[in-house]
Design a protein around this nucleic acid. Structure first.
Lengths: 332, 332
DNA sequence: GATTTGTGTGCAAACGATTGCACGACACCC
DNA sequence: GGGTGTCGTGCAATCGTTTGCACACAAATC
């Protein structure tokens, strides 16, 4: 089978503990011994067994990364960044897809728990209480969710939504709609709360949904948008926004001529559609990196100390493209 | 710490080996003992340590999944499907992004080797020889590459490319170009060989590239396309095709008015662009599933037997949308 | 009733590393 | 020249499972 620490020990004529130390505490060995061991290891092509190491040290150097839907273009850049940072810290990433299902999500945490040092939940759909629960079993870091006592990184969608709504208001829209996403999404709640407050007495905001965050859901909601008579909509994400545009188009309603549409996420998709999508950029890659860093420094910390759970908030930005315009009949 | 098999043994008043057997060979236990053990395990919330199990059995029940670029929309559906199938077989998936770099790719295989039962290489950029090499260390399954003796699943791009070229020929195009992808890509080679042969004496095919499979690369090659004077191009993938369309547009060349463009992969993107992209559909999700199955049955097989390496070929299909049309000035 | 055949459990040795402890060698100090 | 350190290395226990072997007991065989 594979070459073990014992083989190296024999080859270098030392005890296996010495081999182990040649890697973990090289400075404590006589240089000549160290070199002999390292050379032997090199010749034999020795790579320590991460499994065996995990068993003694109790640390696997693996991280679980759970997302609601890998195929949602929001996630890949985040996964990619997370994987890269993890790797640069000599960690590997398990990835799992919860299919937007809270039960599966919780089950995945349990399943992964036995072979990771911690797990990152991205846009979790599980309840806060359950998360607190799970976090007693295994260190958890959150993306786009805040739970006291648990480290998290969020994107400032409140700011993003506020700017987006103001943009619509400034264009002259008075009847707005928010096409909401999954009920369990923290981001969704944040946005929903923000839109009404931002519109204030400058406009009314109808909330449509909840919806699954897919293009199909967006298409399906188009008819309802027309029925409500709003002239501008903010969608939970780009996927829904694009679906809405398609759906509206199918009904003969033009964007942005008749209705303005704003998405959220700034995925690749938005630049490609016609009209090109006005959307809120969120730094997904940064979030992936930050989440890994947070989790790692969390698990590295001494178990005793009641360290304050770190929280990172990332800035968002409105990208104005072609899916928004003044309402028909406005002066301009 | 976590509850171990010993805790369950104590609780159920049996030896730990009995606990172990209660899970692995329940039928060999007296029903009453088995139930007592299972009940104790349930109460304590026992989950066997995958790490410890891996150490004794030599099987981790983990799979490494290496792709060239997670953010390329070609991969996420494949990853998603692979993860789901793996999970249904009680396996977990490590995912790693090789950044289109052969050296990193090989290094990743080595790094993961110590904690997986096998690895799946998707669209590998490493040389065949190196793959054969690595496969002596660790079971490998391939997606979109054929190496004798190694199980693989490929998509029938030869058929796809043939149909695509014929489509262009039938529209009346005579001067074609193939905008190629990464040099190390097997798919790329297959297509390049096919296009010329298919055109035969009905048309000429200029090969442009190699290029990295990104939108930017596509944009960059637009000028060259104009210079060659071709009226239709087949691109290595959707990303490049979309870049080409953008680049052409920036040069005042219309698609499909002046130039027809066909992509490959049929990612989400293609339906969104205007004009909507004519492209070759490849079943990425099926490939992900098939690769996991192949690898699993490969690693399950007895080590001795020289089993014939299984190979799966998946069908492709031309999706005709709006980016292709007869050349300007043709009769129709 | 002695011998064979099962059946259900316990025992203990792996698996491949890490790590606290012990110990010999050597240098240093007074 | 006998204590006192320091340094480099070996020893062996440990992590949490699995699994071949042994053994006690019961049922079946002659």
């Amino acid at each position: 089978m594979a070459v073990t620490i014992k083989d190296v020990a024999r080859e270098a004529q030392v005890h296996m503990s010495t081999v182990s130390r040649a890697f973990s505490m090289p400075h404590r060995l006589r240089p000549e011994t160290r070199d002999r061991v390292l050379e032997a290891a090199r010749i034999l092509g020795y790579r320590p067994s991460r499994v065996a190491r995990a068993l003694t040290t109790g640390r696997t150097r693996n991280i679980g990364f759970i997302v609601a839907d890998i195929a949602n273009p929001f996630f890949p850049p985040m996964i990619k960044a997370a994987e890269h940072t993890a790797r640069s810290r000599d960690h590997h990433l398990f990835i799992a897809d919860a299919s937007e299902d809270p039960a599966i999500e919780a089950e995945l945490v349990d399943a992964l728990a036995k072979q990771v040092d911690g797990v990152i939940l991205c846009g979790p759909r599980i309840a806060n209480a359950k998360i607190e629960n799970l976090s007693e079993t295994i260190p958890i870091a959150l993306v786009n969710r805040k739970v006291t006592g648990i480290p998290s990184v969020t994107m400032d969608v409140v700011h993003g939504a506020r700017v987006a709504i103001r943009h619509l208001l400034d264009l002259g829209h008075e009847r707005l709609a928010y096409v909401s996403g999954p009920r369990q999404s923290w981001t969704n709640t944040q946005i929903r709360r923000t839109v009404g407050a931002t519109a204030g007495d400058r406009g009314t905001v109808t909330v449509l949904g909840p919806n699954t965050p897919t293009e199909d859901a967006g298409m399906a909601v188009a008819a309802e948008i027309v029925r409500t008579g709003v002239t501008a909509v903010l969608a939970y994400n780009d996927l829904i926004a694009i679906g809405i545009i398609e759906g509206l188009d199918a009904l003969g309603v033009s964007v942005p001529g008749d209705v303005s549409v704003i998405g959220i996420d700034d995925t690749v998709l938005g630049r490609l559609t016609r009209p090109r999508l006005t959307t809120i950029n969120v730094p997904t890659a940064d979030a992936g990196t930050a989440a890994v860093d947070l989790l790692l420094q969390y698990t590295a910390g001494d178990e005793d100390a009641s360290r304050p759970a770190a929280h990172v908030s990332l800035p968002t930005e409105l990208i104005i493209r072609d899916s928004t315009a003044p309402p028909r009949g406005s002066g301009s």
